[in-house]
Design a protein around this nucleic acid. Structure first.
Lengths: 142, 142
DNA sequence: GTTAATGCAAATGGTTTGCAGGCAT
DNA sequence: ATGCCTGCAAACCATTTGCATTAAC
C-alpha cells in the first residue's frame, strides 16, 4: 500500500536523513485506518494487535514525526492527554466534544472565523493559530 | 480585609464543614491581588514571599477550593500547566495569547457566541461550556 | 560500515495523595 | 476533643529521554 499519505511521510523522512522503518509504516497505517482523534495510548493498543512488541515510545516518536510532516495535528482538550487528528487535505475546523460519550463533531463556521480576525485586528493582534472547543451533549446523549 | 470574595470563600467553606485557615486566606489574597491567569507555581512563589513555608500542595488544594466555590476558573492553554483566572462578577470571555511575551488579552464578541449556538443547534448539540483561544503576536511583539 | 531507530527502563514535570503532627471549631 | 488542614515526601500519569542493541541505508 502506497497512499499519498505514505508518500508525504517518506518525503519528509528522506528530506531529513531519517529512515523508513517497519514500525513507522505500521504506526502510520494504523493512524490512517482508524478513527480520528486517537491518543497515543489508543494507537499503541491498536498497533500492538498487529505487531506485538512495538514500544509506546516509538508510537510517540512517530506521532511527533507525523505532526512535523503535516500529516497529523495535535489536539488538547484539557483532559490530560493529547489526541491526534488527520490533517492531510483536511481543512481547518473546530470541535464539539460530547462530555457523555466522547464523540467529537467537527465544524467550521466562516463567520466565526471572520469575526475572530476582526477582534484580533481591533487589538493589534496577529493570529497564527486558534482553536474553538465546545463541550456539551450530543444529540444521542441528551 | 474582608472583601466580597473573601465572603464567598468563607460561605463556601462553612457550607461544606471546612475550616478557614491562615494559609487559605493568604492564598486567596495573593490570588486576588495579583494579575490574572497565574499558574499554581506562580502563586506559590508569590505566597512564599509573605509566608515562607506554605507548601505547594496547599496552594493546589486552595486553588481547587477557589474553583469549586466559583471564585476562580481553570484555564488550559495546552502548554502543560493550568492557569487560574478570577471569576467573581467576571463575565464570560475568550483569550488571545501572545506566544512571544505570554500576554493574555481577553475579549468577547457577541456574534461569535451567537454563531456558536447556531452551529450547535444545527447539530443537535447542547453546549455546556466552550472556549476559544487565539495564539499569535500582540501589538508589542510584532 | 555508518548512522539512525528501536525497546526498554528510567527520568521528567505538573499535579495529586498519604500520612503524622498541628490547628480551627 | 474531634476532625479538618498542613507540610513534606512519595505517588501519579502522560510524555520524553538515555542507552545498548538492531536495522536501514
Amino acid at each position: 500500500m502506497s497512499s499519498k499519505e505514505q508518500q508525504v511521510l517518506e518525503d519528509f523522512i528522506s528530506q531529513n536523513n531519517l529512515k523508513i522503518t517497519r514500525q513507522r509504516r505500521v504506526v502510520l497505517n494504523a493512524f490512517l485506518e482508524n478513527e480520528e482523534h486517537v491518543s497515543a495510548e489508543d494507537l499503541h493498543r491498536i498497533v500492538k494487535e498487529k505487531e506485538s512488541n512495538i514500544g509506546l515510545a516509538t508510537v510517540y516518536r512517530t506521532l511527533s514525526l507525523l505532526t512535523q510532516s503535516g500529516l497529523a495535528v495535535e489536539l488538547d482538550f484539557g483532559d490530560g492527554q493529547k489526541r491526534y487528528e488527520h490533517n492531510y487535505m483536511h481543512s481547518h475546523h473546530d470541535h464539539m466534544i460530547c462530555t457523555e460519550c466522547g464523540k467529537i463533531i467537527e465544524f467550521n463556521h466562516p463567520l466565526i472565523e471572520k469575526f475572530q480576525e476582526e477582534v484580533a485586528r481591533r487589538n493589534g493582534f496577529t493570529i497564527t493559530s486558534h482553536k474553538l472547543d465546545m463541550f456539551g451533549l450530543c444529540a444521542d446523549c441528551k
